[in-house]
Design a binder for these strands. Sequence first.
RNA 1: GCAGCAUUGGAGAAGUGGCUUAACUCAUUGCCCUCUCAAGGCAACAUUCACGGGUUCGAAUCCCGUAUGCUGUACCA
Length: 483
Amino acid sequence: MEEIKKVRVRYAPSPTGYLHIGGARSALFNYLYAKKYHGDFVFRIEDTDIERNIEGAEYSQLHDLIWLGIIPDESIEKPNPKYAPYRQMEKLALYQKYAHELVEKGYAYECYCTEEELAEMKENQYANGIKAFKYNRHCLNLTNEEKEKYIKEGRKPVIRLKMEKGVTFKFHDLVRGDVSFLSDDIGDFVILKSNGIPTYNFAVVIDDHIMDITHVLRGEEHLSNTPKQLQIYKYFGWEPPKFGHMTIIVNENGKKLSKRDNNILQFMSQYRDLGYLPEAIFNFLFLLGYTSSDSKEFFTKEEAIENFDPSRLSSSPSMFDNKKLKYINSTYIKHLDDEKYFEFILPFIKKSAKAKDFDENLLKEIALIYKNEIAYGEEITSLLDEILDYDKNQLTDEEKEFLNLDSSKLAISKFKEKVISLKSFDKDSVKELFLSVQKETSLKGKNLYMPIRLKLTKMSHGIEMHNILKILGMEEILKRIDL
RNA sequence: GCAGCAUUGGAGAAGUGGCUUAACUCAUUGCCCUCUCAAGGCAACAUUCACGGGUUCGAAUCCCGUAUGCUGUACCA
């Protein structure tokens, strides 16, 4: 009887950048998996690429995740002593010990080849039509004398794993089903760099093993790393976790999202700054490459956990659809209760220079006016700026012409005459006002409203008339009507 | 090149041999509402599942081949 292990999954970013779409989605599904099966979600850092690590990345990776509601059970800030440390650079000695263990067992060997020699090797192979570089095992059976000679020359060895010959690595992928690779296609790869730091493929294996990771859900780009890692597991006699390779997210050209992609916002913090709700992004990410069997589309976190089934993860790439994200976000905004909505939207209203000093009640009324209009928070800022920053707006020739019509002039003057005595800007009072203007001018519809709208906002479209009046206030209305 | 994975409308996709006249959602288009924009309501949108063969009474679903795309092929992760 196989013992039932507690499910433990992880998200293990390298701190080379802030949390981005792909990373967040990867973390999301691991989180879902953990919670679905009552396991732990571990956040660990793979910081072995010391050249590319950047300031603040680690913090962003963790805290943007938490912002999304993806809360680790264990992390660099919440370590479980049994599994700590959670940064790879803090346990170099461990990797080195394991690497040397493999060397002693004859499963790995020191390699003294220089960068130049490797480059030459590569070139030779390339000339023979081989583009996938495989190390030629020059250093496989070095004698001690040869090694000493190299060391005297100042060379520092790396450790390479000796791949087995004629072995097929088979595994059952959680999302793709049975997958197999031939060991012969894989060259002896480096597990420990000459500076003593392990490479990714080695360090993950060690980490996943000592941290008791049971399931690994990761991007498709790691699919071909899996046999390398399986070879390491095999040499150590460890049981590998279950792997699942999720599809990558692609841009509108069908290419994997890259950090240099300018058409698509990459980072979670950018979405937060623009006024996307974490719940909406969570939901959107959940839908990227996953569909529930009942064609439901809106999920709370709890519902997503409940619904999640790794076998329903798509295996063909999904395109990042910004319009869908907007749609989902706007739906979440509409469904926010007013208190939560105010809390969310007020900072964006106050970003509009002319609105920031309005009194609290007006601010809230403005907020409500736009609740159905906006797809994300920042939109309210620009919408408000359009109305409030009168001087910036320009009438088109057509609009000027329309404004010059006698009927337009009549509407405006009658409106001016009546608006002064308007008691309230609520919908009914304003409607009544327009009704009385209509009565006395016999203008209606577009001929009645449009001149006034143009006069007040210099725009031919926008929010309802009573809302315009409310936002502007009497003083501003009279000022603009006279211009 | 080699290896792996994939291929259903503009996008996400459901579909696992007969219930499919290919669900659902976004986008798009049209209509309604309306001074306008948005929101909302209604409707339209794949005779067909990359292509070519095969298996079968019956195929998007199974098999073979081809094409295309993606990912990987580092002392990056």
